[in-house]
């Protein structure tokens, strides 16, 4: 009982501390609501004269996402296998796991900023950022999926005289493929969402023009691009859902 009370007090204190520290103010929000509508109001009516920018940058965002996700997956799958603790000795899987955790801990925008300063403006640094980020996230899923696979059928395959690579091909891959594809679909969806804002740091795509037009106070043009982002993310989510539905 005393434990529950002190837990309650501790959680309350934590919440109070957080809201206090983050200057939480319902009144300020309330007063800001008209401003919110005003902001959206300025975006309407959408100025469709930028349809060519919309089209090229939406395609660029899509291309960035596909290239980044593919590149990430290319490294994530083999690294994920090597990071599975029941497959490789500790001196192999531990450093790889640590590397992937390190990569995950870097915010995507920071990665993009890093690559922008390395290779210049445009979608290419975005591809690199998405790829590196995907290695960290996807690799971990791969490793966890492999660790959770029932090892006994694999042992039975080993018992037929199959070699390690044959066991991977005929035993492991069939067992984990559906989950792998499902994770890849989710990753694609998330990367699509993320790549729409990569433009904030100059890494191309729709986001770049949204911020460009906002900076130039061309609200009606940026409004069109915001709509495009919403539509694109929605389409990505739908596609990923279709893939997952088919697998499960």
């Amino acid at each position: 009982m005393a434990g529950k009370v002190s837990l309650f007090l501790a959680v309350s204190a934590l919440l109070f501390w957080s809201f206090q520290g983050s200057e939480f103010s319902p009144g300020q929000f309330w007063r800001g609501i008209p401003q919110l509508f005003h902001f959206f109001g300025r975006m309407t009516p959408p100025d469709w004269s930028v349809w060519d920018v919309l089209l090229t940058s939406a395609v660029e965002t899509l291309q960035t996402t596909i290239a980044g996700t593919f590149l990430g997956a290319l490294f994530a799958y083999p690294l994920g296998v090597l990071a599975a603790s029941n497959w490789t000795p500790i001196w192999v899987h531990l450093p790889i796991k640590a590397f992937m955790a390190f990569v995950r801990s870097i915010p995507l925008l920071l990665l993009a900023l890093l690559f922008v300063s390395a290779v210049g403006l445009g979608p290419f640094p975005g591809v690199l950022a998405l790829a590196v980020h995907s290695v960290g996230v996807l690799g971990r899923f791969v490793a966890e999926e492999i660790e959770a696979t029932d090892p006994k059928p694999l042992l039975a395959l080993q018992g037929t005289g199959a070699s390690s690579l044959q066991i991977i091909q005929h035993g492991l891959i069939p067992q984990v493929l559906p989950q792998m594809v499902a994770h890849l679909a989710i990753r694609f969806e998330m990367n699509l969402r993320d790549s729409t804002i990569l433009g904030l740091v100059g890494a191309g795509g729709l986001g770049f023009y949204v911020f460009l037009y906002v900076k130039q106070f061309q609200w009606q043009k940026s409004g069109v691009l915001v709509l495009a982002i919403i539509a694109l993310v929605f389409a990505g989510e739908f596609a990923a859902w279709q893939v997952r539905k088919r697998l499960i």
Binding site: P153, L155, L157, Q169, H170
Partner: peptide, 27 residues
């Protein structure tokens, strides 16, 4: 039983041959 559940009966039986087949051929 320890079969590979997501492979067919034939494929599972073929797994018995893996010890004889070279990696390249099985790939």
């Amino acid at each position: 039983f320890d079969l590979i559940g997501r492979e067919t009966v034939w494929q599972n039986v073929y797994h018995g041959r893996l010890g004889y087949v070279s990696l390249l051929k099985s790939v």
